[in-house]
């Protein structure tokens, strides 16, 4: 997570977050009178928790309070669930916090330093994320903003999906939704897009890994992988995973390769008035007519539609 070789990423962490909040929702989709599913209790728990996070005081000089932040929601997946130190990565790289020796977070903002890994950006990412989670959970449950969390079935239960997308000038969370039928409880969808600044890790200018030494990594961008999950020219958008459960997928359609056109040397001597501002570099396809469709590997931020979906911890 966080080393995106493509511009759009799902990846393991967001798949797990979706699994946490969507687990069992297919039962509601199948039978509209079904109102309960394992993810529902987690949604209500997360919504109540994140509302408290949003309501916490925030100091311009001190930043966010150190305790009871977004990452302290007790039902978040653990590092063991994800397979790496996700809690510290998000705290440090996304929220811009420093990790003390005892593991606690120093949440005070550093003046004139970028927030975490976000290049050239200072912002309160934790507060944005908390607000995004509140809003998206409310929309998924059919609650107006600030409505009390119902003790019984909520008005609706739409699946939630998350992506993050770079490179933007500043951090944003987009909460989008689509109702497929007003007559069914789960006939709709909430899609959240975290639009993030860049973070100085290379984005690949070619969507298909070039792997001459067969180490499953692209020869130029190591996070661009071809390890069995990557597919070139996928044909079938399968609805279910090998265990028969509903699944999802992402494909990217773009040129096979791109080249950057460099700026020219502006210090070259020239005559009076024969000069101007340098042209900024532009990116162009190597072959104007060559467009490919790719299913990125999960380790590159994609979704392996041919493997079982993740199981919520």
């Amino acid at each position: 997570m966080g080393k995106m070789p493509y511009h759009l990423e799902k990846g393991h962490y967001l798949l797990l977050l979706e699994a946490t909040l969507n687990e069992g929702i297919e039962a509601v989709v199948d039978v509209d009178t079904t109102t309960d599913f394992p993810g529902l209790a987690r949604r209500c728990s997360m919504l109540a928790y994140m509302r408290d996070v949003v309501d916490r005081p925030c100091s311009l000089s001190g930043g966010e309070i150190e305790d009871n932040g977004v990452l302290d929601w007790p039902e978040f997946m653990s590092d063991a669930d994800v397979g790496f130190g996700i809690r510290e990565i998000i705290a440090e790289d996304w929220f811009g916090y420093r990790i003390r020796h005892d593991g606690s977070f120093d949440t005070s903002p550093h003046p004139n330093k970028p927030t975490g890994m976000w290049d050239g950006y200072q912002g309160n990412v934790e507060r944005i994320v908390a607000n995004v989670l509140v809003r998206s959970l409310e929309v998924s449950l059919g609650l107006d903003h600030g409505d009390p969390i119902p003790s019984g079935p909520p008005p609706r239960s739409w699946p939630l999906y998350f992506f993050f997308k770079c490179q933007q000038p500043f951090f944003e969370g987009w909460v989008t939704w689509q109702c497929h039928s007003v007559n069914r409880r789960a006939a709709g969808q909430v899609t959240v897009i975290f639009a993030t600044p860049g973070h100085n890790h290379p984005v690949s200018d070619h969507p298909i890994p070039i792997d001459a030494n067969h180490d499953h990594k692209d020869d130029q961008v190591s996070t661009l992988r071809n390890d069995g999950e990557f597919l070139e020219d996928p044909t079938e958008a399968k609805a279910d995973d090998p265990t028969g459960k509903p699944h999802q997928g992402v494909w990217v359609v773009t040129h096979r390769d791109h080249k950057k056109l460099n700026v020219f040397d502006t210090s070259v001597p020239s005559a009076y008035l024969e000069w101007g501002p340098p042209l900024l570099p532009i990116i162009a396809p190597e072959n104007f007519c060559d467009v490919v469709t790719v299913q990125p590997a999960a380790l590159s931020g994609g979704i392996d539609a041919l493997k079982p979906g993740y199981v919520a911890p």
């Binding site: 050239g120 000038p169 502006t266 009076y272 000069w275 900024l280």
Partner: peptide, 27 residues
């Protein structure tokens, strides 16, 4: 100057110019 006998070697801080305009970093 238009006679061509005078040549200019210009070294300009274009990075700062584009940053001030807002096309660098901010995209």
């Amino acid at each position: 100057l238009r006679s061509g006998t005078v040549v200019f070697h210009r070294f300009i801080d274009w990075l700062a110019v584009f940053a001030q305009i807002g096309v660098l970093h901010l995209g």
